[in-house]
Design a protein around this nucleic acid. Structure first.
Lengths: 235, 235
DNA sequence: ATTATCTATAGATCTATAGATAATGC
DNA sequence: ATTATCTATAGATCTATAGATAATGC
């Protein structure tokens, strides 16, 4: 085997980069997404220039279009990756459990997802620019997730396990409390992701339970996997 | 009294506006702040141009500098008005109550403040651009508020009323749960501000109480104004 | 004279695109 | 031939500022 063929293995097709650096770790599109996620989260979307994103991965500004035709496409792809894991986790939720148990399972997996990963991906949805219609697809997917919360909470209210509050309030608040994690949970801080996730999930559940004293029992039942006896209906 | 002097009353010094509209309702600086708050919250800081702000109050872009030398100064003033009310509310907090009662009082006033007003002023602090050093004064004030939470929560853990969790976790989570309101509470939605505020404050308190069953008792005690009997210390 | 505005613009961006170039692949 | 990059730039911003102007105040 000549040294020629050895070199060819590590080299890539296409004009070399201006800075001379060779791309080793595969997928450039992935690198762009990762770099952009960090920049968007720290500086904001509009305040992050395509030049900055390109520089972060060792490209010139104009070369980005080879991977993403417009800046917006990068954010769209990142947002997509935000909802999808939560939505598919929802599907695996056993329906044999009583609603308050299912709610705990939903809450705790959701909180775990939000605190997982190196980057605060889910935080991107709070960027004001994301409110624009251009990102409608994302908001539709997210609404699906919220609808699952609504189903479970409504069932819990019917069974008497959850307080007979306004459903909209209960759903909005529960959903909102969970998502508070993306604001304050700090991956570089002292608090462990699992502790933060559990604390928030527990507070959210406590907020809707009819009998707050039952909370640790509900959590234990969910985690032992055994469906506990449902609370007696109120009416 | 001539009609001349009558006219003078309603007219103002200075060159008339280009659009011919006459400013009636006093303070232009306040109008700028209000318009900017709405635009920043909806579109983001960088994505809002000084031209848009000016247009919203019937001025030309260049005329803004008469009131605020730079765009940043508008946001700084808005952020100032965000922390100050919360900080002064904290001062009025009776120290004769046990910590869990004081915590409830702090939580409920804070949540009330966050949901009050026509505009989601507090939401501005989540704008990514605000993280920059330029707004350090704001973050320092906010840290003072957080320190009050820490004092009270630490005291509650010592007294045994609050769960013996990591203080940092408890403070970060409690503070974060409260602030989740700025993300999801919708002034144009169906949920009343007072309901949203109460739900969140209650969930946050439930998250840290040693005995969740006590929650409604603690809240009732705080609201009747009578200091209840403190829980027995753990050690 | 003072004030609140205006108009016009310099200088600095920023994004998307056209077209060139330097690799590998066949 | 194909691919991944480059360089250069058009066109559209955006912010801050200079200097003019049209009111009122005295």
């Amino acid at each position: 085997m000549s040294s020629d063929s050895l070199n060819r293995r590590t080299n890539r097709v296409g004009r070399p980069r201006a800075d001379g650096r060779v791309v080793v770790e595969g997928d450039v599109a992935e690198q762009i997404l990762e770099a952009a996620a960090g920049l968007f989260a720290r500086q904001g979307y509009t305040a992050t220039s395509t030049r900055q994103i390109a520089a972060a991965v060792g490209l010139r500004q104009g070369s980005l279009s080879h991977y993403f035709a417009r800046k917006k496409d990068i954010l769209t792809e990142l947002l997509d990756r935000t909802v999808e894991p939560a939505l598919s986790a929802v599907d695996g939720l056993g329906s044999e459990f009583p609603p308050e148990t299912r709610l705990w399972l939903l809450l705790s997996t959701d909180c775990a997802i939000l605190t997982a990963g190196e980057q605060n991906l889910a935080g991107l949805m709070l960027l004001p620019e994301v409110r624009s219609d251009e990102f409608g697809r994302f908001w539709a997917r997210r609404q699906q997730l919220k609808d699952r919360y609504r189903d479970i909470i409504a069932a819990g209210i019917r069974s008497g396990a959850l307080a007979r509050n306004d459903v909209t309030l209960a759903v909005d608040a529960t959903f909102g409390l969970v998502e508070s994690l993306v604001n304050w949970f700090d991956r570089d801080g002292d608090v462990a992701a699992s502790d933060a996730a559990r604390h928030v999930a527990r507070a959210a559940l406590a907020g809707v339970l009819a009998d707050p004293a039952r909370i640790d029992q509900v959590i234990a039942a969910a985690e032992s996997g055994a469906p506990e006896i449902a609370a007696a209906p109120i009416d």
